[in-house]
Amino acid sequence: MPEKNQAALEFLLTRRSRPAKTLTLPVPDRDALMPILTAAARTPDHGKLEPWRFIVLEKPALDRLAGVAQSRGAALGLDEVQIQKGVDQFRNANLAIAVVEIIKPNEKVPAVEITYSAGAVCLSLLNAALASGWGANWLSGWASHDRGFCTEALDLSDNERIAGFLHIGTEKATPPERPRPDLEAITTWLSA
């Protein structure tokens, strides 16, 4: 039998995202963020393309993004509830990391695998933040899918898009456990 890392397995079996609206100060500083970002960058990456990058959003940047979300939501004709949700995602945050997927066409690597890798970076970043003792949550939202927002707020290139915003901070309340998938219902065993 292989040697088991029981502490890591126990963490993964009990990990729980923390709702972004429950995260408060303090947030990790740059020194505390570097091992978290380093862990996230160890994500599987077919072809070693590094099809993602990080944008660390500190409070002044988040406030600016809230303003862009307000104007973009109005320009898109979204209702007030949708706009406010987009604004609050940034205005109520103290630190977030935008994970940017970079589309790098490669004849050996299907485009979908680039997207999978960017999603894996988001989960790795989330887990690294939680394992470091911080509260963390992975969000997207309408703004992350709006090209105008991505260009105006984050100056993304045409070959870039948001895979997610990872909010990190100090949790003020531990969330209750939620129902988990029924493994019997979602698992098929093939032996031949």
Results as ranks from 00 to 15, higher is better:
160 E>D: 13
52 W>P: 06
52 W>G: 08
14 T>Q: 15
48 K>G: 12
26 P>G: 01
160 E>A: 12
160 E>G: 11
159 N>W: 05
120 A>D: 01
146 D>R: 01
11 F>N: 13
5 N>S: 10
30 R>D: 15
177 E>D: 14
31 D>R: 06
92 N>V: 02
188 T>G: 04
98 A>E: 09
154 L>V: 12
15 R>C: 12
159 N>T: 12
80 E>K: 04
169 G>S: 13
6 Q>V: 15
75 A>S: 15
71 S>K: 14
132 S>V: 01
192 A>M: 02
42 R>T: 05
142 W>T: 09
133 G>M: 09
146 D>N: 12
43 T>M: 02
146 D>Q: 03
125 L>A: 07
75 A>L: 10
76 L>I: 08
31 D>A: 12
163 A>L: 04
132 S>K: 00
169 G>M: 11
73 G>W: 00
171 E>N: 11
95 L>F: 00
53 R>C: 14
26 P>Y: 02
176 P>Q: 11
147 R>V: 14
164 G>E: 11
3 E>D: 15
136 A>S: 12
48 K>W: 12
148 G>R: 10
116 Y>D: 05
49 L>I: 13
148 G>M: 07
99 V>K: 10
58 E>C: 12
20 A>Y: 06
190 L>K: 11
35 P>A: 03
132 S>M: 01
173 A>K: 15
114 I>F: 00
51 P>T: 07
128 A>G: 12
46 H>E: 12
181 P>T: 05
159 N>G: 10
120 A>F: 02
132 S>I: 04
127 N>K: 04
45 D>L: 05
176 P>A: 15
136 A>F: 06
106 N>F: 02
147 R>W: 14
46 H>K: 10
103 I>H: 09
117 S>E: 09
188 T>K: 03
93 A>R: 03
67 G>R: 06
179 P>F: 07
65 L>Y: 11
39 A>V: 06
112 V>D: 06
175 P>I: 07
56 V>C: 14
42 R>D: 10
80 E>P: 02
23 L>D: 00
91 R>V: 06
97 I>K: 03
96 A>Y: 03
67 G>I: 04
157 S>L: 11
108 K>W: 01
67 G>F: 04
65 L>P: 08
105 P>Q: 02
161 R>T: 14
33 L>P: 11
51 P>D: 00
44 P>E: 03
81 V>P: 00
42 R>A: 13
